[in-house]
């Protein structure tokens, strides 16, 4: 079965001989750069330049006390990166972040895909209600969510532990127990973020021609078979996008521990981004930048992996 993602076969060659117009290849090259220029100019100035500067920063001993005279700092080469090896807090943060990503990303994708497929199935009335409802946590500010979560998770009188008590179970101290704090944070993150993926996946599902489903139904395919053999393959670019974007976000886990646990208890919810935030707060700009680029490398690595698994041959 041909998929819509397959690149057209060598259109350049097919058109290369087309008459008086400028050569096809040149024309497309010019058009490509014309389309790319507005973005690229802004991007180079406001994004790429600061990125390069921060990369340079990671090779210096810049501290917040040098902010007014940033050129008076010393280049220290890779010393900041070497220091990471002895940073036990960083290792703990890396482990926590890895657990968070490995558990959290698949859960979030599954929840987002389930919600999107259900709402796209044609069976559902009140679609708007569900869509808006599932999207609400995404748009709500984290400070407000923290107030709500506190009311849910309070060990003595929170809604969850009250419900557990009703069925005869003594609920734990969700955020105060070093073994439960990270799992609690994972659940919060999935709860907060699956609506984002739902929106992305809904858009992607719309791009799948309805004819494919119709003809497969004539062939006697059930809903699961349709999902498995049409939806998932057709949704590949979108799934890839969702997976990469969620991984990028989750590897930078920060807000939930910031408002709920401050990285505690006993560093059990300290994430790499939180560690970076702390290092910036301590004024260790050079070191914080180095940690950031190690995190960046992890993000790139995970994305490459996902492109390998899900990407087209592009």
């Amino acid at each position: 079965m041909a998929t819509a993602t397959a690149p057209a076969k060598a259109p350049a060659e097919a058109n290369a001989t087309a008459g008086a117009r400028p050569p096809y290849r040149l024309r497309q090259g010019l058009a490509g750069w014309a389309f790319a220029t507005p973005f690229t100019v802004l991007f180079l100035l406001f994004m790429a330049l600061p990125v390069v500067a921060s990369l340079v920063m990671s090779l210096t001993d810049l501290r917040s006390t040098d902010l007014r005279t940033p050129l008076a700092v010393e280049f220290v080469g890779l010393d900041n990166y070497a220091r990471l090896l002895d940073d036990t807090q960083f290792r703990r943060a890396a482990l926590n972040t890895a657990i968070f990503v490995v558990v959290g990303v698949p859960l979030t994708i599954a929840a987002g895909l389930a919600a999107a497929s259900a709402l796209n199935s044609g069976l559902v009335k009140f679609r708007t209600l569900f869509r808006v409802g599932f999207y609400l946590p995404v748009v709500t500010s984290i400070v407000a969510l923290a107030v709500v979560w506190r009311f849910l998770l309070d060990p003595e009188a929170g809604l969850i532990n009250n419900a557990l008590r009703a069925v005869g179970v003594t609920g734990p101290n969700w955020l105060g127990d070093p073994n439960l704090a990270l799992p609690s944070i994972i659940v919060m993150a999935v709860w907060r973020n699956f609506g984002f993926l739902m929106v992305i996946f809904l858009a992607g599902l719309q791009a799948i021609p309805a004819e494919l489903y119709e003809s497969s139904r004539l062939d006697g395919a059930g809903r699961w078979a349709q999902f498995r053999y049409i939806t998932v393959p057709m949704l590949r670019p979108t799934l890839l996008f969702g997976g990469v974007v969620t991984s990028i976000g989750y590897l930078q886990l920060f807000e939930e521990p910031l408002v709920m646990t401050r990285g505690g208890p006993l560093d059990s919810t300290l994430s790499v981004s939180y560690h970076i935030y702390n290092q910036f707060g301590f004024g260790n700009y050079g070191y914080a930048a180095a940690v950031s680029y190690v995190l960046f490398a992890a993000i790139v690595g995970l994305s490459v992996l996902q492109f390998r698994l899900l990407g087209s041959r592009d």
Binding site: L49, P50, V52, A53, V56, M57, R68, T69, P70, L71, A72
Partner: peptide, 9 residues
Amino acid sequence: VAALVLGAC
């Protein structure tokens, strides 16, 4: 690059 971004000081 650093000088450009951070300004000459």
